[in-house]
């Protein structure tokens, strides 16, 4: 029996005004993968995530999450927005923000309880932020802000994690820590989909890649689709970046082959 894909887009077209942002995207992302969405600026990467979350206006097509429309599967999906999308000067502590991840489990007239608090602290521990639980969010570094968002997503206990540039503007230590965490999630059968901007690390970090430039250029396991031809088709003429990425990719492959031996 074929497993239900974690996330499917059928003939998806999204237009904010007159120009389409995403055009006729047909894509199905399998469960249990660590997936990168890659493409040039304005390629519709963030919009693809937003379309999955019902946050973007669909001109045609539809989205399925674990085989059902998103509203039915809402509790199984967690979203990590771009760091800049919120006002970090907002008067809230790190724990306050992580607790927000638990609101989805509560109805209109319920409040978060001690169990939610324990779970939130637990998630903060996983991202190495336990000691900052009471810290005001405006006094966090970029990396710590990203970890806070990640902890909030973990607190949602979801199966599918959609993340908008989780590695943008974070320090090297945080980048490693986030990567480890994402791999742990994948290893427990969760699906993680990240918008990613650094071509050089795609091959090393992810299992699966979606190459997007308004239309879907290619999607599949890294080894099958992440090559210079496809990148060229995605990015057009910016060869220098591509070549560096490709060399890096080759090195990684050779390295992995060596490790395997």
């Amino acid at each position: 029996m074929k497993k239900t894909p974690a996330l499917e887009f059928h003939d998806l077209t999204v237009a904010y005004d007159i120009k389409p942002v995403l055009w006729d995207v047909d894509l199905s992302i399998p469960e249990g993968q660590l997936v990168a969405i890659v493409g040039p600026n304005g390629a519709g990467k963030s919009t693809l995530l937003k379309a999955a979350l019902n946050l973007a206006p669909l001109s045609s097509g539809f989205v399925r999450v674990y085989g059902a429309p998103y509203p039915e599967m809402r509790k199984r999906v967690a979203y990590v927005p771009q760091r800049e999308s919120v006002d970090w000067d907002f008067p809230a502590s790190v724990l306050d923000v992580v607790l927000m991840g638990r609101y989805g489990k509560r109805g209109w007239f319920q409040r978060t309880n001690a169990a939610d608090r324990t779970r939130a602290l637990d998630c903060l521990g996983k991202v190495g932020m336990l000691e900052f639980a009471d810290r005001q969010i405006s006094r966090l570094s970029g990396g710590q802000q990203q970890r806070t968002f990640l902890a909030r997503a973990l607190a949602q206990d979801a199966d599918l994690y959609l993340m908008d540039e989780p590695f943008a503007g974070v320090d090297v230590v945080t980048e490693r820590a986030i990567l480890t965490l994402l791999r742990e999630l994948r290893d427990t059968g969760k699906t993680v989909v990240c918008v990613h901007h650094d071509l050089q690390t795609v091959g090393e970090y992810f299992d699966w890649v979606v190459l997007l430039n308004m239309r879907l250029v290619a999607a599949g396991p890294i080894a099958e689709v992440f090559n210079t031809d496809k990148l060229q088709a995605t990015y057009g003429g910016h060869l220098s970046i591509l070549e560096r990425a490709a060399t890096r990719l080759l090195k990684d492959r050779r390295g992995r082959a060596r490790d395997a031996r």
Binding site: L55, R74, Y79, D87, A92
Partner: peptide, 22 residues
Amino acid sequence: GYFFQTFRIVVFDPACAATLGL
């Protein structure tokens, strides 16, 4: 007072609030 927690997330991060089903 009753909706304090909810107002907090709706004002802080409306996109996240929407994905939480609020």
